[in-house]
Design a binder for these strands. Sequence first.
RNA 1: GCGAGCAUGGUCUAGAGGUUAUGACUGCAGGUUCCCAACCUGCCGACCCGGAUUCAAUUUCCGGUGUUCGCACCA
Length: 574
Amino acid sequence: MSDVNERVNSLISMLKRRGFVYPAFSIHGGVAGLFDYGPVGGRLLRKVQEQWREHWLSKGNIVEIDSPTITPHSVLEASGHVGAFNDHASECGSCKAIYRSDHLVEQYHPNPDSLTGLELDELIKTNEVSCPSCDKKEMLPSRPMNLMFSTRIGATRGGRQAYMRPETAQGMFLSFPMIQRHFRNRLPFGAIQVGKGYRNEISPRQGMIRQREFNMAELEYFIDPEINPNHEFIKWKDTTFDLIPDPQNNQQKTVKMNILDALQNNIVRHPTVAYFMAETYDFLIGIGADPNRIRFRQHESDEMAHYASDCWDLEMLGSYGWIECVGIAHRGCYDLGAHEKATKSNELRSWREYDEPIEVNKTVPSPVGSVVGPTFRQQAASVSDALLNLEELPNQYPFQLILDDGSSVTITQDMVEIKEISETIRGEWFLPHVVEPAFGIDRIIWHILDHGYEITKKEGEEYCILHLSEHVAPYDVVILPLFEKDGMEEFALNLQSEILQLNRINAYYDGSKSIGRRYARADEIGVPWAITIDYTTLEDGTVTIRRRDDQKQVRITTDDLITLLSDNSLHSQF
RNA sequence: GCGAGCAUGGUCUAGAGGUUAUGACUGCAGGUUCCCAACCUGCCGACCCGGAUUCAAUUUCCGGUGUUCGCACCA
């Protein structure tokens, strides 16, 4: 077994043993792609999510929403998911290989993705498509592979077709009218949502990396495409990012670049995309990811989802290689446009006021109702409409006017009055564009665990330390009486209750077995601070603070400890 | 979905067609110990599920489920 495998096995085994993450439903045999976060992992998940929320909510123009996971068919049809998730698969009758049906007929149809199963089968048959692997011409009828979990709304017969959401994003798009009202119609603004997403993967692999139900966190940031965004990049002037630009745009290799340079060289194509790339990087570093194991990869033009004009994946390097953990996509106006089209809603647009109002003077024909009415009777309304819609007035009367239904009528001069209209146009309605950073929380958690997991030697024995960031560590401190006697136990328990009163500080007590073993247990689940109560404590009220990452100790009073803990500044003592 | 391997306490593992199923680590209780998985005593705890063969199956066979690895899939 390779070293990498040994390391992964050791880590996975620890995660199960200590209650971080483990396969769900295992006493019933388990289900591939579903996991439990346990007593320790649950807290880690929650803290990562909280850090994520804080990161974006502190920008000021971003709000959080929460929408249902059960989503009606029409929503996902409008968004394109029903089509995109209903790919068809064809199996070779001879060698059993499976291919996406639309890939097989690419050369025979301009847009095979849009075809139904029957149409695909027909194309395969008439063109005698052969199996790419065994070359025989025995493709079996295609079958749909729907990657969305299907369900029905309504307990009785019938009901309405629905799916478990494959992403949280649609909730933000559908709440756009409410979010826009909240921000009093001033772009730019954003909305976030943290929650579960569901994809019925054909074959989940690689542990937490591909799950069927997973934690996502998405941000939709709405902007006016005609206003040049004003982002501050000074913060990252000394930060170098690893970028792999689209090969059609540039060379394939990783380039190390400042984000502003990347933007100015048009490698990153939009300032808001660049801004969110940098912010995303900051977030990950903040929760303890290794900066040297993060890179951005630009989607190639043909890989890019149909709606996106620029898309970057943030990839993290871990035991499974480089894994996509965040996707930052410029989705244009695709989503809002799609829902507008499907619903005819007029609430999905924003108002853009012109710098200068435009005065428009035009000459329009105005139907004279008293003549048109009696002349055309039932047809009068459509005649009036057709007249109003005329691009140009014929300069001779009478003329033939074509109506909507195709018929034509004769218009005489007395039916039309020419009016001079002057109109002031102050602005226009438009579909905002959206930049979407979408985070795979479980993948990120896997990588901070992976990055933080260190196997070292101590006195010749294997020793494991989980270097979790203090911002996400499930426990902040552990309280250890050197021995459970002579009053040390009581002192420790009292100190623990006192610490637990502090906001957001989680402490646990461990009094069993030798002090060394208890340090080891705490190091293994990444507790940053260990507080030890010894005989000196009983004399003068001081305790020792041990720092996980280097095992250094200092002695301070419990009063100082409480102050430093609540300020989150214990580091100042080292 | 296909093919191959694997499936034993919380974790890692040994094992044979046969009566109390190994061992290590962890955990728990006690003892000892003035700060880094020490030591001593004791304890808790397992053969993935279903069917077949057999006097007897955790062990053999078949199916399912899970898992690992390849192929395919991953908007």
